[in-house]
Amino acid sequence: MDNILFFGDSLTAGYGLENAATESFPAIIDTKINAAGLNYRVMNAGLSGDTTAGGLSRLDYWLNKPITVFVLELGINDIRRGVPPQTIQKNLQAIIDAVKSKYPSAKFVLLGMEIPVFLGGQIAEEFNGIYRKLATINQMPLVPFLLAGVMGIKHLNLQDRLHPSAQGYKIVAETVWPVLKAVL
């Protein structure tokens, strides 16, 4: 059985859900994989509050397991903490390079994030461009905006308005699944 590693922050972990083991988007995708009869095991390496630097520091632990597909979702906590977009891009590239070095035949899916330009101006534009640049440079499939169809919609988010509800995660999974399925 091949491993799919979902590597990210609270959005991957399923922060705030009653049962992240069944309601997070990696768990929903695992159900889809099983229903499609595909021979993959989903591993959820989401860690609430994680940054690209944090992800880089904990990556070796996860690379001790064979990885066939690596799904990367990090960066939004960095920008919220004022980390420059150039540093975020550098750290994401370092994560990609480390996975490629250990597992040269691994396939990748990059999950992009966006922030409204009216909140951050130039910084927002630079941040929003990181994921497309990385996808192009590394020739990897991209989900341009992980929270498309969910962000800003009250009933699809927890009270914090930052994290999807169980219903919101169903939409997130539908956003990710076509891109991931094509890779599988």
Results as ranks from 00 to 15, higher is better:
residue 8 G to L: 02
residue 41 R to P: 02
residue 26 P to L: 11
residue 105 S to H: 11
residue 108 F to N: 03
residue 140 M to D: 02
residue 16 G to A: 07
residue 180 L to W: 01
residue 2 D to Q: 12
residue 44 N to E: 00
residue 181 K to N: 10
residue 155 H to R: 12
residue 47 L to Q: 11
residue 24 S to H: 05
residue 76 I to V: 13
residue 182 A to L: 09
residue 14 G to T: 03
residue 92 L to H: 09
residue 87 T to I: 08
residue 89 Q to R: 15
residue 78 D to W: 00
residue 84 P to N: 13
residue 66 P to F: 03
residue 172 V to M: 06
residue 105 S to F: 06
residue 152 G to E: 11
residue 53 A to L: 12
residue 27 A to W: 12
residue 120 G to R: 09
residue 91 N to P: 11
residue 152 G to V: 09
residue 38 L to R: 14
residue 146 L to M: 14
residue 77 N to F: 08
residue 146 L to K: 06
residue 171 I to G: 08
residue 30 D to W: 06
residue 7 F to I: 01
residue 135 A to T: 02
residue 69 V to K: 01
residue 92 L to S: 07
residue 147 L to T: 02
residue 122 Q to T: 15
residue 46 G to K: 01
residue 34 N to T: 14
residue 6 F to C: 04
residue 43 M to Q: 11
residue 140 M to E: 09
residue 151 M to D: 10
residue 7 F to W: 05
residue 37 G to F: 06
residue 66 P to T: 03
residue 105 S to D: 11
residue 47 L to T: 14
residue 141 P to A: 14
residue 36 A to E: 11
residue 110 L to P: 03
residue 149 G to K: 13
residue 72 L to P: 03
residue 52 T to S: 13
residue 160 D to M: 06
residue 84 P to Q: 14
residue 86 Q to E: 15
residue 160 D to H: 09
residue 66 P to M: 03
residue 141 P to D: 03
residue 149 G to I: 12
residue 68 T to C: 01
residue 100 K to A: 11
residue 63 L to I: 00
residue 35 A to N: 14
residue 156 L to H: 05
residue 143 V to N: 07
residue 101 S to D: 12
residue 103 Y to I: 09
residue 116 P to S: 13
residue 11 L to N: 14
residue 7 F to C: 01
residue 105 S to K: 15
residue 91 N to M: 05
residue 165 S to E: 12
residue 22 T to C: 06
residue 21 A to T: 02
residue 80 R to N: 15
residue 174 E to I: 10
residue 120 G to I: 09
residue 73 E to C: 15
residue 67 I to V: 15
residue 118 F to N: 11
residue 29 I to T: 05
residue 30 D to K: 14
residue 20 A to G: 05
residue 15 Y to P: 01
residue 100 K to E: 07
residue 142 L to I: 10
residue 48 S to A: 13
residue 20 A to E: 14
residue 113 M to Y: 01
residue 123 I to D: 09
residue 133 K to Q: 13
residue 89 Q to Y: 06
residue 15 Y to K: 07
residue 44 N to W: 01
residue 160 D to V: 02
